[in-house]
Amino acid sequence: MNKKVSKKDIAQLLKTWSQQFNVLAPSRDSGVAAMAEWDGKDTSFLDWYRNTVVPPKASFLPPMEAMFRFRKDEEGYQIEPPAKNGQKQLLFGIRPCDARAMAILDMTFEDAYKDPYYLEKRKKAVLVGLGCTNPCESCFCTSMGTSPTDPTNVDLMLIDIGDHFFIEEVTAKGKELIAKTSGLKEATKNDEAEAEKARETAYNKVSRKLDTEGIKDNLLESFDDEDFWEKVAAKCISCGICTLLCPTCYCFDINDELVKGEGTRFRSWDSCGFSLYTKMPMENPRQEKWRRVRQKVCHKYEFYPMAFDVIACTGCGRCIRLCPVNWDITQVIESVPARVKGAK
């Protein structure tokens, strides 16, 4: 039997969970909408129309992270791993698009190789999803294998049914958490029907569509069409917004901060949109802007599908909404020459 929780009781629920977890929830306290440590009272994010600007990947792959400290003494370099905080994170209010993005990131950080920094946080984390009731104009999740209320990649999924949230128990981890949580009400048949209605309504509200059929092959065929890439790249300003704030982009740079014989090695977000990203001593294979734009598109829609059989885009729409020049990836995909030719 599924449970439900009154909207008024969310604060109480989060307080309960705070005893066991480091609860993170959407917040604007830092000046930008992002997942942040829950302050113990604010639940205004439940009414937010939009998703966070900073994607929840930041809780697992932070913008900047210390990898280890090092020190030089008589015996050589001493390495000191970063202090593990041991905290279990509970991300409350993660949207289905971002939860799917986490599953996509797992393919790189767990399947392709084991990234200890990422997995340390990821394996212990609980994701509690919050279904969208009002998808944005820039959202196209339904085209990317997910939906505004998709429970696939979370442990628990909350669906707005008026005064209450209907709780869908998805994973064993989620079920266990609910079993240990007191004060939840039993959901009725009617609640279940309401939840189903909410799912359908939200699904139908997503107006932006992208036909994913054949994208990979289209891109492969038009890969060398320099004229096309130059044209679509013309207005790009090569900033890092669409990549750094993409929930599935994971590129990072590694640098040392040195202070007199000791230091810290950091990794921090990097972007293939930057011209220096591929700079090497002798050459830069992506010196021209169109090559970088092509890389960004193809990595998500061609190379990632080749490696993992999934498109590394979840339709969250951040790149469209936040772009300084309204560079719209759905328009670009639709205008790939091989695709236009195929459609005729």
């Binding site: 830092s30 000046g31 930008v32 992002a34 900073v54 913008p63 300003i237 090569s238 900033c239 890092g240 917004i241 750094l244 704030l245 921090s268 977000w269 972007s271 930057f274 300084p324």
Partner: peptide
């Protein structure tokens, strides 16, 4: 300090 703490170095300010 507070404002610049959330900068993610996307360089959009510079590139635009």
């Amino acid at each position: 300090e507070n404002e610049l703490s959330r900068c993610i170095r996307c360089y959009a300010c510079r590139n635009v």
